[in-house]
Design a binder for these strands. Structure first.
Lengths: 354, 354
DNA sequence: TTGAAAGCGCTAACAG
DNA sequence: CTGTTAGCGCTTTCAA
């Protein structure tokens, strides 16, 4: 292949406008100390020639690459893609992150990384060296991988940790998992439910714990017991099935179950059906995440929406702000989540069962 | 922000190995004319220092950017993302394209473009100027946008047109839409169906026509009429609903319907239910694409799988090959698609219906 | 407020 | 086979 050169470079613009390269550079980067008339003249030349700066060249000399790296867990992401069950985490990240990047002239690059591997650092170092990104977005479970977080801090690249509350390096953003769990629990309590079961998520994800905390906190606040109502899961359908079965086959089964993600809620629906329970008449179910499948279940699932797009968008904003030298937010950034009501919740008709 | 320099550059490696920059460069790029022992010595230094070339610098001097641009339709993609119905086209593109890129040290960058806009060229030129990608992947409906295709050809960048059969510039890859439609039709005919309705897709997409062709061809081959059995759709649920209703409420309704995508098949299922028809007993349905929702319908949909991941993977390979100077494939590259049997098809029990 | 010079990290072209 | 030289397009000094 022929050596491809930039069609129109800063030189062409400078020549066309009759100014120096620097002046053009200043206009591109919106720097001060350019007379309005100069600026206008240059801008005209830029438009006329259709000039767009090469990010490679910008990166070579300057401090910005206009690239933001989004790191996701390799195994889980690939497994989700292959399963074709509609998990849309990546899509929502793109929706929020990519579009926000575009607004600012940045691009988002996706990268998959093994969080458990002992050479995480090498993998990431390679990506950093190759791309020289202006910032990095960490998603769960990377966000809480201490090795990784420590390593990134050393690299002095701004990074956001999505789904993280821990103090320490990097900018944490949380999707208010605890608050959402409280919302879901309160919703059920207000409908008369008092035995509310909870299926937790993968303990690798810090947010799993926060969701449990929210449920427990709200139950406690209402003076309701939680003994025997918490079952561990790991976000898989199979784990949800096991957990739901234990909950529903116990001597004192709950009238409502909150599942920490949609797959486990789907499993709960299935177990309920197999036990002859009708949802929501005999059992109310609330799920977390609000992924596509909630539309297709029988009945459609009432769910806590996980505001991934809004969070990714905010992550990009925080990185760009950090890059500009703005101070990082004093407080934890929390993106609130809504409860989306569908058909899987009803009032508790106490005494109807067992 | 401080000016960030590469931590370890080719210079460090050269010094460490006691050779010239050029030799290191040759080793990195796997070029000939390096003695094995030299190569080994350099490789050791690279490993020891954890050196990774900066793609920005590689792009600046060389002819490669190690970036491949994947262009998708802006409106439809964003609409799909927002709808959160589980359309996983983008995910499958990433699964196939991104992973294949990674194998070769390339990265894939996603970009959304308005195909109908009159400044498509400007948008794309901007992306090309900024990124200097080594290749571009066009997806429908961009693949058949003549303005765009002509423009890209002028840029002398290798580009693949997914879902395209037309001759002309660029490397076309087809997912065998006509063949798949034939497969689906043949499957139904073999089960005794003779009145097989077809709901076509958005005419903006060339593949819509090929799917119709396949159905018509196979029907003709079997000596079956198609009058009144073709209804136009545009890939939306609403259009599928209209089309299914017309088909099923006609005086001489089909015993089977092939819908050109899953959304329209879903609509068909709904219309059938509203008409008191049971699927598959009273009506067989085959859908196209095999997106996530096929798992969740009642019954699960038998569908033609659209091999997006395999196609994206192949697209990347073809671009990298073209970049290396390999001749482009003489024949059209066709990725074959499979029929995935689920629960929406049964033998035709002729005469069962009115 | 503007311009000239230097160099980012790497490869192409050529010389040895 | 290996090394030297000259940039790629841009921003950062620094000087005017």
């Amino acid at each position: 292949m022929a050596r491809r050169r930039q069609a129109v470079t800063i030189k062409h613009v400078a020549a066309d406008a009759g100014v120096s390269l620097q002046t053009v550079s200043r206009v591109i980067n919106n720097e001060p100390n350019v007379r309005p008339e100069m600026k206008e003249r240059v801008q005209e030349a830029i438009d006329r020639l259709g000039y767009v700066p090469s990010i490679a060249a910008q990166r070579m000399s300057g401090s910005r690459s206009y690239l933001i790296l989004a790191l996701n867990d390799r195994d889980r992401t690939i497994a989700d893609w292959r399963a074709r069950q509609g998990t849309d985490w990546v899509d929502q990240m793109l929706l929020g992150g990519m579009l926000k990047c575009a607004e600012h002239g940045y691009r988002m690059i996706f990268e998959l990384v093994d969080t458990h591997s002992d050479h995480v650092e090498r993998e990431i170092l390679a990506a950093i060296a190759a791309l020289q990104p202006d910032g990095i977005i960490l998603t769960p479970p990377h966000s809480d991988n201490p090795q990784l977080v420590r390593f990134l801090a050393q690299q002095k690249i701004p990074f956001v940790r999505i789904g993280s509350q821990e103090n320490g390096e990097g900018i944490p953003i949380s999707m208010d998992d605890e608050g959402s769990a409280r919302t879901a629990t309160r919703h059920l309590i207000s409908l008369g439910h008092s035995k509310i079961g909870f299926i937790s998520g993968d303990p690798d994800y810090a947010l799993s714990g926060w969701r449990v905390d929210g449920w427990q906190g709200e139950m406690a606040a209402a003076g309701l017991p939680t003994d025997g109502l918490l079952e561990p899961g790991d976000f898989t359908y199979a784990s949800g099935e096991r957990a739901a079965r234990r909950l529903l086959e116990s001597a004192n089964p709950p009238s409502a179950i909150i599942a920490s993600n949609d797959q486990m809620a789907l499993a709960t629906l299935e177990v309920a059906r197999s036990l002859g329970l009708e949802v929501p008449r005999d059992l109310s179910v609330i799920s977390f995440d609000n992924t596509p499948l909630v539309h297709f279940t029988q009945p459609p699932l009432t769910a806590i929406d996980q505001p991934i797009a809004a969070t990714a968008s905010m992550a990009v904003e925080l990185i760009i702000a950090a890059k500009k030298g703005d101070p990082r937010p004093e407080a934890l950034t929390v993106i609130s989540a809504d409860l989306v009501e569908r058909g899987s919740v009803a009032s508790c008709t106490a005494g109807t069962r067992g």
